[in-house]
Design a protein around this nucleic acid. Structure first.
Length: 216
DNA sequence: GTCTATATTCCCTTTACCTCA
DNA sequence: CATGAGGTAAAGGGAATATAG
């Protein structure tokens, strides 16, 4: 929910939206020395100094940053009262405090996105490795099946029932145990029988992992 | 009860400034 | 000293929400 604060917001930030340029007088206090310091270090030219609408990049002091951080830890959004109190305490404008919180939330989000990204990357790596291992296993089994000895011992081909939507194999019809069918299959009749003949599957081209993911 | 205008806040993107290697 | 990269304060715009008339 947005705009939580607006109902009892008797305090308006002068021009409604934006304009930090017109900082309220309270902001002059603590940042005074800082501003002076910066002004001197930047060597402001005389012509743009006076009625400037140029941005002044304010660097928050360590104390200000620490207080803001503490406040952010408590609650990452502010209601108008809290904002005003904090602004007063810091000697900043309410809009500055608001903007700081917005930027802080953005930083938090960015960091979280990075963490999530790392996590997904690791998941992907693990799955890739698992896939590689399974491919190898399939290859080995196929080699085994192709040997004459295996062929002689083979039972007659059976059929599997596969769910057309999720492609899950339901159950071998002639198996000793009849597991419960896939729930979605109970009311469906479009069941596609899949041959379990080893020679049939061979017709499906199985690309090796390296073929799919060529390495440079 | 519905509509509309206004105010406020939020998020996202961009810009501008500052610091540091 | 100049410069480019990275960090971040601030601006601008759009969307959502609340409220008053």
């Amino acid at each position: 929910m947005r705009g939580v604060a607006s109902p009892n917001s008797t305090v308006s930030t002068v021009s409604g939206k934006r304009s930090l340029c017109e900082r309220d007088s309270t902001s002059a206090g603590a940042a005074d020395d800082l501003d002076l310091e910066r002004a001197s270090s930047r060597g402001l030219s005389d012509d743009e100094d006076g009625g400037d609408n140029s941005r002044k990049k304010l660097r928050l002091t360590k104390d200000q940053s620490a207080i803001l951080e503490d406040s952010f830890k408590e609650h990452n959004t502010l209601n108008p009262k809290q904002k005003l109190a904090l602004a007063k305490r810091l000697g900043l404008g309410p809009r500055q405090v608001e903007v700081w919180f917005q930027n802080r939330r953005a930083r938090t989000k960015l960091k979280q996105t990075e963490v999530d990204c790392e996590f997904l990357k690791r998941c992907c790596e693990q799955l890739t490795e698992e896939n590689r291992r399974l491919q190898k296993e399939v290859q080995e089994l196929r080699t085994l099946k192709l040997s004459p000895q295996f062929y002689m011992q083979m039972t007659p081909p059976t059929t599997l029932t596969m769910c057309p939507s999720c492609e899950r194999v339901a159950a071998p019809p002639s198996g000793p145990v009849q597991p419960k069918p896939h729930p979605s299959l109970e009311s469906r009749s479009s069941i596609r029988p899949v041959a379990n003949n080893p020679w049939v599957t061979a017709a499906v081209p199985i690309r090796s992992f390296d073929a799919i993911h060529p390495r440079s």
